[in-house]
Every structure is written in structure tokens, then in C-alpha cells.
Design a binder for these strands. Structure first.
Lengths: 343, 343
DNA sequence: GATGCAATTGAGAGCGCTCTCACGAGTGTG
DNA sequence: CACACTCGTGAGAGCGCTCTCAATTGCATC
């Protein structure tokens, strides 16, 4: 098992190293008998080509990186990220790629990580979670010419390839749903303002209101940070404004919001309706199941990997963009299933 | 920027490739002036050694793998895993290692992943999350001679190196705390029974009861699966037995349990006390802050990486074990801070 | 001034693959 | 039967590093 190389396989099969290489990379130019003989040896010996040698010779590592800048601290508070990571891992498994994970806790980490990521001969490409407006890692990595796909629209998307879900439209659907049900005082809990996700979902919220001639009221907006605790806090701010419905920009913030409302004895959806965003499992597990905007999280991850492969194989120019659709999932937290006598 | 190699740096610095290599790997035998000159060139050109070439020549990849078998589906329902992953990532950053992530969704994934992990020249070692009793991946990987550290005591730990927290003792502390406060009918919500975590924590619970001469009552045990929903369900089973306190084997199950109890109007800790396990952030964010057994999650991850490095550098024999201590964190969910007139 | 020794540098043989090129055998064509 | 052409295989030159060994130098020693 120790140090078993191509050469050894070749000897056992009575052919030249080159031929074994051809079999492994299923090149067409090998006669059926020889191919069979070589495959038999490979199988019986459990031979696996040396990854480093292969990378060096072929200039391909078949490994991609997933980079989470320090700004993505919600990796640990929002189940969205583990799910996304899972989707990406699936995409990698399906395409015989390996996935390398880079988590930066602080600026120092980012500095330390950067040269490792950009090192030639290491990664074929990277997926970078978009972050704040001036994202150090995105800036550096995209400049380093390594094929990169940004997960989520970056603030400056010029010339960059990215994949995102249609946040604007998703928020429109959510707000529209509440409007259709006759709610009048629709508040919203946003993520942190320095995220395009927040910006886009807020824009959708505004657009939906405008579409029915409703005035946008800044007082009906509370800023959170995509954590459960921030949803809880946001409700404290919002309650004095007497909303009858809330658009939460993430399910996990909706969970926090519900907790806060239940504490003061408000019933959902009777007193206040609430709609989330993401459709993570917890949405289904609440006592009052959460109506939400479903993101195709797993598909999102898989598509991201496929887009990156496209860039790796066919060049990064021109920049490509993929926007995935969302879906309104109606459960119980907005009262759509009851007959509403409102309006 | 394209194809800039050691040789190019050498030419610019007017020395031989070997010398540049020495500077990069800070070998002592380089004169100060030359070292300075070479470093200047490296800096000004932004040179980074080719990872594949280096791995091939040195037989070290400076990359380790984190393997999550399909049985670890709670990666997505329990925040414990993202935190652990973070700890591991920190450990890697501190030691200039890269981290490769392998998530298996099903058996097919595991088969597909295995040869990639075991490929020579790819990983220096692997961290494997322990799983079910007959874990396919653990079995295969440890047999393949790649240095491996199991995260969490495996069922069959013979000859394997692993790291775990002291689950038995942690559960003793938890149960003891409730006993000390005078609770009489202490129930417990466990994880899935085919996990050593569950087994160990249940054992601690039993031991603590026995230590004070209390009989163990199987009816006071409800099996969950470390998910919030299972904690919720478990309470439904447990309530008819009228417990006055509950040891939940994870915070997230405690959250579910609390939700269930609040729904039927039980107050915490006045009607039922509850203690969790893990000390994830949510424990602090609940209205009634959760008393819990704190795991040093980040340190756990860092230590795991260090143990693996030890195995890589000094050989895997004899097998090494690290058991980390837990800590009782007293908050409000057990009533310890009020003066109890019970007993 | 011959000798020994440490410090510094250069030379070059790998590491285990891929991939182009050359070669020989087999096939078809006029 | 000479020719071109395809197909399968072998040869061997890299890929960009590391690391051992040899060569060179400077300096102390006797």
C-alpha cells in the first residue's frame, strides 16, 4: 500500500505508464483488452493516483475553495449558512471536486488566509460569500485572477460573476401576500444595512407598498442582523408603532420576533401576522407554522458550484450571473388559511 | 503574475533556486544579506510557491480534512456543529493548514468521497466526526493508515486516537446541580441512543442519581435526536410523569422542551426546572436564561487540530486521547439564584 | 603556509503524474 | 504494391518544488 505508483500498476499490467494514465483519465485511445487488464490491476490493488503529482502535471487541482469573510459571522447564528454549505458540498460531490473551507474570524485571519487561497496550484477556483461594501477578500481574490463566484450579489458587481436569489422579488411576494390579506400597518425587520441582501429585500418591500399606492414609513423599519436575538429586539422597537403585520428578512429573525410578541401576549396571526424568509426547517416546527419565502438553498449551492466550473473551464470573461427564483410558502403565521373578515 | 516560479525569483535575486527555497522554508543556512535580498524580491513580486509542486516534493500537503459522515445530519439542526467547525478552522489558521470539508448526505456520497479522501498526496490527516456504532467511513479511513483523529468517542475506540469532552462528568454535574437544589423528579431528554454522546450523558445522569441513593426510572427518560423538534416532542412524552426538573442533553433540545412547556402554561423554573448542555449562544438569549453545561467548543476544535498535527508529525502510535472538561454555567432556568424553599 | 572546519551556495536528482510526439502495425486506396 | 491514414502504444520531457551532496570560501589553528 505504501508508495504505490502509476509505474507499479504499469508493471503489473505489462504496459507503459502512459497507458495506465490513459485508462485512468479515460482517454479513448486504448484497446478494450488492455483497458480491461489495467482496470483489473487498478481495482485489485486499490490504486489511487497521487493528488499532488496529478495537480502539478495537469495544472488542475480539482479542488475549489469556499471563503467566508469575517463579516459573515452569522455563519453561526443563522442556519442558512450550514444549509448553503451543504448544498455546495453536494455540488462538489456530484462533480468530483473537493471543497476547501476558509473561515476568517477577523482581519488578521483574512490576511493569513489570503496567500494560502491564492497560492498557485492549490485551488481551481473559489466561491466567496459576499459581505460588506468594501470586502477585502473579494477585492483581493478577484484581482488575483483566480476564477471566482460571489455568493450573493456584491456591492460592486462590476465584472464579477455572482449567483444570488431574487431578493427584490421575494420581498415583493412577501409584502404583497400581506397586502392581499388586507393588512394595513406592515412593518419590516431587516438584516444589517451593509448587506445587499438587506438592501434588496427592503427595496422589494418598498416597491410592493408603492405598487398599491401605500406610503413608505421609515418608522416601520427595524434593523436587525439576521440573528434570532436581533429579531427579538426589533419587535421591542416596532411594537409602539402598532404594526398588524411584519415582514422579517429571515426566518431566524422571525423566530425571535415571535418570541418577543408571545412574551407580551400577542397572538399570531390574530394580533400580528408575520412572514419570514429562507424556509429553514424551524419554520415548520413552530407552533404557529411560519409562512415564508422559500429559497432553493440546496439548489443555490449546487448551481454556484456549476457556475464556478463553467468559469474554470471556459474562462471568466464575460462575467456571468445567475438569479434564482423564490417561492411563497403559505403556512399559518399570516392567517391566509383562515377566512379574513378584515378590510 | 502568470507562471512565476522559484526559478524566476532566483534569477531576479541573482542566486540559485535552492537558496530561494531555503529562504522560503526559513532554513538557517543563509547569509543575512542574501536572505534580505531574496525576501525583497519575493515581497515585491508577491511570489507564492506552487502548492502542488511543494506537496509533491515534500510529501506534505499542509491540508487536513474534516469528514462528516451521513449520520451527522444534525450538522444542520444543531448550532453545535457550525461552532465546532469554526473552532477547527481557527486551529487550522493558527497552524497554517488548509481545511478540506467532506459532507456526506448518504451512503452513495460516502462511497464517492472515500477515494478522494484517501488519495495519497492530498491530505496529511483527517478529523472524523464520530457517528453510529458501525461507521463505514471511520472504519475505512482508519484502516487506510492516514493519520486520523475521531471527534467524539467512537463506539469502538480500540487503537484509535480521539478527542472528546467529559460527557459522563458533565451530565453528573448537571444532575447533581438539580439534586442540590432539591428537585425530586428529575427527567432527562437524551439524544439518539446510537451515539456515544447520548450513552455517556445518560450514564452520568444515572450515576448522579445513584450517588444519592435515588432509583433510576426508565420512564423518566425520553429519547430525542439533538434537534429542537425532538426536545419539544420529548416533553409531550414526559409531562404525564410529572417531572419537576429536566436534564436536556443539548441546549437546542432544551429550547424545544421549553417551548412545549410554555405552550401548556408551565413556568420555568417554578413549575419545572431545566438544564441544558453545550452552552450555545441561544442559551443566553432565552427569556429565562438557560442554565447549562458549557463545552469549550472552540478549544475543542483547536485541540483536535493540534492532536492531529501531533499524529502527523510523530506517528499515530500509540493512540492518543484527549478528554476536555466541562463547566456548569448557572443562569435562571433551574432557580438556583432564587432562594429555594423547597425540600 | 599547510590543515581543518564551519558556513554558505550551487548542482541536480528526484517527487508521481500528464501530455505531446514518434513509431509500428493494421487498413484502405488507386 | 507504394502510399496515406488511423489506431494503439511507448518514450520521455516536463510540471515547480525539496533536499542531499558537493564545491567554494573564509577563518582559526598549529
Amino acid at each position: 500500500m505504501e508508495k504505490f505508483t502509476l509505474e507499479d500498476v504499469a508493471k503489473l499490467a505489462g504496459v507503459h505508464r502512459s497507458t495506465v494514465s490513459r485508462v485512468i483519465n479515460d482517454s479513448p485511445n486504448v484497446s478494450p483488452e488492455v483497458r480491461k487488464r489495467v482496470q483489473k490491476v487498478i481495482h485489485s490493488t486499490g490504486y489511487q493516483p497521487n493528488a499532488a503529482a496529478r495537480s502539478l502535471a495537469s495544472q488542475r487541482s480539482y479542488m475549489i475553495g469556499l471563503v467566508l469573510p469575517r463579516s459573515v459571522s452569522s455563519f453561526f447564528t443563522d442556519p442558512f449558512f450550514p444549509h448553503l454549505t451543504q448544498g455546495i458540498a453536494f455540488g462538489c460531490n456530484n462533480n468530483n471536486l473537493s471543497l476547501s473551507l476558509f473561515l476568517a474570524g477577523n482581519r488578521e485571519d483574512e490576511e493569513k488566509i489570503l496567500p494560502r487561497i491564492a497560492r498557485r496550484g492549490f485551488l481551481d477556483g473559489v466561491l466567496i460569500q459576499s459581505g460588506r461594501p468594501d470586502e477585502f477578500l473579494i477585492d483581493r481574490l478577484t484581482k488575483s485572477n483566480i476564477p471566482s463566484v460571489i455568493i450573493g450579489r456584491p456591492f460592486l458587481s462590476d465584472g464579477l460573476s455572482f449567483i444570488d436569489i431574487d431578493n427584490v422579488n421575494g420581498a415583493i411576494k412577501a409584502t404583497q401576500h400581506l397586502l392581499d390579506l388586507g393588512y394595513k400597518r406592515i412593518a419590516t425587520i431587516t438584516g444589517n444595512h451593509d448587506s445587499t441582501v438587506t438592501v434588496d429585500r427592503l427595496e422589494g418591500y418598498k416597491k410592493a407598498l408603492k405598487a398599491v399606492g401605500r406610503e413608505f414609513d421609515p418608522d416601520m423599519v427595524a434593523e436587525g442582523d439576521f440573528s434570532e436575538a436581533s429579531g427579538y429586539q426589533a419587535v421591542k422597537t416596532l411594537l409602539p408603532r402598532k404594526p398588524d403585520a411584519i415582514v422579517a428578512q429571515s426566518d431566524i429573525m422571525a423566530v425571535g420576533a415571535i418570541r418577543a410578541m408571545q412574551e407580551v401576549g400577542l397572538r399570531i396571526p390574530d394580533d400580528v401576522a408575520i412572514i419570514g424568509f429562507d424556509d429553514i426547517p424551524v419554520a415548520r416546527q413552530l407552533k404557529v407554522q411560519l409562512t415564508t419565502i422559500k429559497q432553493p438553498i440546496t439548489r443555490f449551492g449546487i448551481k454556484a458550484v456549476e457556475l464556478l466550473i463553467d468559469l474554470i473551464e471556459n474562462g471568466t470573461k464575460p462575467a456571468r450571473r445567475i438569479i434564482l427564483d423564490t417561492e411563497l410558502v403559505i403556512r399559518d403565521s399570516c392567517g391566509a388559511k383562515k377566512i379574513r373578515e378584515h378590510v
